[in-house]
Design a protein around this nucleic acid. Structure first.
Lengths: 252, 252
DNA sequence: GAGTGGTCTAGACCACGCG
DNA sequence: GCGTGGTCTAGACCACTCA
């Protein structure tokens, strides 16, 4: 990246041309993990204001090419890790092979959007199970699983030995009871969002960072019995859906 | 949104507080399609610089709450439209029920990343079929489908009557031949990206706008026979995966 | 304490859509 | 031609990490 000046011809914005130049430099002159010069240095080298340079860096970070940490610097990001969200692996919360870790649980009234998804009255109490997904030593996703209290009571069965009113143990208790319902299927959707303050803390990133929001509706006996809202770090991960056909492809 | 001043207490950045205030205003005082005051007006009303206000608007646009058009203004965005990308509906390119429209096709050498996905030599020629997906009168996705020329030739069959060297008709020809291979399965992944110049033009948005990139690998007879890179507008759509279980949920 | 990225300001001009 | 959002500047200070 020895370039000193940014020659430009057309009406293309500077930051976009800058992004192109930086992308080529990343492809040819940098390796994963390597640190870039700091922003003031880079801006001076290209002869632009720091805000303009940052516009280019912002997009490169959005695309997962760069990793920026306050107080530390900017480095070349590793390729995104693939996270399998296909129903085969991620079948049913708490099922064997489920690699999520339950971190907390408490009863609450759900957000209205969640209540609608559950076909529940807006004021109906639900259990909220908080879980995180850790791979390669880093948190990649945080999830809130909503289960109406009503679906957890089994008719003709005595109330179970009292679980704690809150905490991971209560969450495991809820998942165990959910397990007893036979899963029929799930609807799932993916959209772009930005991390709220609590998710950002759990995912070790700044609030407002881009995330992929995966919303899942779980069904048993033809009824919606649970809903999950999971936020995946968009910068570091890629959602994979495994093989959706009849014959396996060999892993490449 | 009659609020005139932005009182603040903690170390929370102004733009984030601003975003919270605006979100509440959108939820309570605005309806879909309604226009907001212009940016200079809003910035003055909240007592911040325009750049700070724009930081808040940027995030709200990323979340699909706002729609901004240069020369026009900012309006409240409608809810994102769900686009079904489940294998049931989106089975095999060109299959009946496939709602994509073929716009162009030409032979080319694929990008190296695509060649690797196809298990092809980097210089092996492929057919590139361009397609767009239109729903509710707007383009929501643009796709490039890569098919190695080798998989299209049928041994012991005469070369077909010459298709045009380029254009939609050639694309339909390629898809028709691809149909003859029996589909076995597909691998799919979703990640965040930003629109390049050509995709931006086809999706009627600005370059750099956030998109969801869906990469699909199609297999037949245990081999990878095609790969598709589709970019969906992240602002206006939500990818849905239908029912992935054994029993249908009633549509809500 | 030195150095990094994150936030913020108060301007300016440009490109675009529309009447 | 006017009003809109998009780009750009040249500063400033803050919050954070690390030696």
């Amino acid at each position: 990246m020895g370039s000193i000046q940014l020659e430009q011809q057309s009406s293309e914005p500077k930051y976009r041309h800058l992004k192109t130049v930086l992308t080529e430099a990343l492809d040819t002159e940098f390796s994963v993990g390597q640190a870039l010069p700091n922003e003031r240095e880079l801006a001076a080298r290209f002869g632009v204001a720091r805000a303009t340079l940052r516009q280019a860096l912002d997009q490169l970070e959005l695309e997962g090419r760069l990793q920026r940490r306050r107080g530390v610097g900017t480095t070349v990001a590793p390729p995104r890790v693939g996270v399998d969200v296909s129903p085969r692996r991620h079948t049913w919360p708490g099922a064997p092979g489920d690699s999520w870790v339950t971190t907390d649980c408490a009863p609450a009234v759900p957000p209205t959007a969640v209540a609608r998804m559950l076909d529940a009255r807006p004021d109906e109490p639900v259990e909220v199970v908080h879980r995180v997904l850790v791979t390669h030593g880093q948190s990649v996703a945080a999830e809130q699983l909503y289960v109406p209290a009503a679906v957890l009571v089994t008719p003709g069965e005595a109330a179970p030995a009292g679980p704690p009113a809150t905490g991971p143990e209560r969450g495991r208790h809820v998942l165990a009871r959910l397990q007893r319902l036979r899963p029929d299927g799930q609807d799932r959707s993916v959209e772009l969002g930005s991390a709220g303050a609590p998710e950002a803390r759990r995912l070790d990133q700044l609030p407002g960072a881009p995330v992929l929001i995966v919303t899942t509706r779980y069904a048993a006996a033809g009824r919606t019995v649970a809903a999950a809202v999971a936020t995946y770090r968009a910068d570091t991960c890629r959602l994979t859906f495994g093989n959706q056909g009849t014959v396996s492809l060999s892993a490449s």
